[in-house]
Design a protein around this nucleic acid. Sequence first.
DNA 1: TCTATTGTTCCTAAATTCCGAACTAACGAA
DNA 2: TTCGTTAGTTCGGAATTTAGGAACAATAGA
Lengths: 130, 130
Amino acid sequence: MRPLFHPSIDDVTVEAILHALSDPVRVAIFARIAGSDCSQSCSNFLTVSEKAVPKSTLSQHFKALREAGLIRGERRGVEMHNSPRCAEIERRFPGLISAIVNAHKVQSAGKPPPLPTAAAGRRKAPRRRG
Amino acid sequence: MRPLFHPSIDDVTVEAILHALSDPVRVAIFARIAGSDCSQSCSNFLTVSEKAVPKSTLSQHFKALREAGLIRGERRGVEMHNSPRCAEIERRFPGLISAIVNAHKVQSAGKPPPLPTAAAGRRKAPRRRG
DNA sequence: TCTATTGTTCCTAAATTCCGAACTAACGAA
DNA sequence: TTCGTTAGTTCGGAATTTAGGAACAATAGA
């Protein structure tokens, strides 16, 4: 298993951050990691916003967040501990992360919480494979 | 020619904004439109950050910015006038746009201005087509 | 050992992006 | 009117990126 790659803060780009956070699942993951005071393991996110996320996809999402410089991952035993790099990013790009997380909150607050029984109908149809 | 589509401000999403601005050419375009006091035509951006942008690509970039709700385009005669929708977005997502534009400035300031003679070597190699 | 748990890698299909070529639309001149 | 120019769009196909199932690797406990 390959060691985890984390960019130095000076190599972190706005483009990479915005791209990483332009995915609804990834912002949701990041918002929760950034908002928590203890590190989160990947498996805490096997469902995100009522939607199941396959673990291979989840792994890719975490890789994207790590390589954008948004989180730091550390393997501890069988699981991974993920923590935000907010402080570093704040020094490099003041106000960026909080504005994005805030906007995400505004948007989440704007749409009513999905009713459990109606949720299935709103879910994106699964893609069928060969 | 199809009429231009502009989302209502309430339909504008953080994800769409971040995705639109996660492209280096598009942030550069948007930063210039947002920073100018007069509207800008598309053809002003046939070269962006010393790099030529094919006009079909440019057209797609403007479409992406419009449909993300970041700019408003208006056809006047043969050309298009593009203006930012910063005020509306600021009301919906306070601080978001300015943080991103600021971050983009920080990043641009960080890298030294490319020397004209050396610029060609740093350009991304063009993809070869069939 | 064997088994369970957590996460990664591989592989292929689907989606997205890029950009040259062909096109449309507005304008001015003859 | 028709021709030519300019500004931008659309089309089509190749390249790139993404999604997720299956197989795998690594750790821990029994």
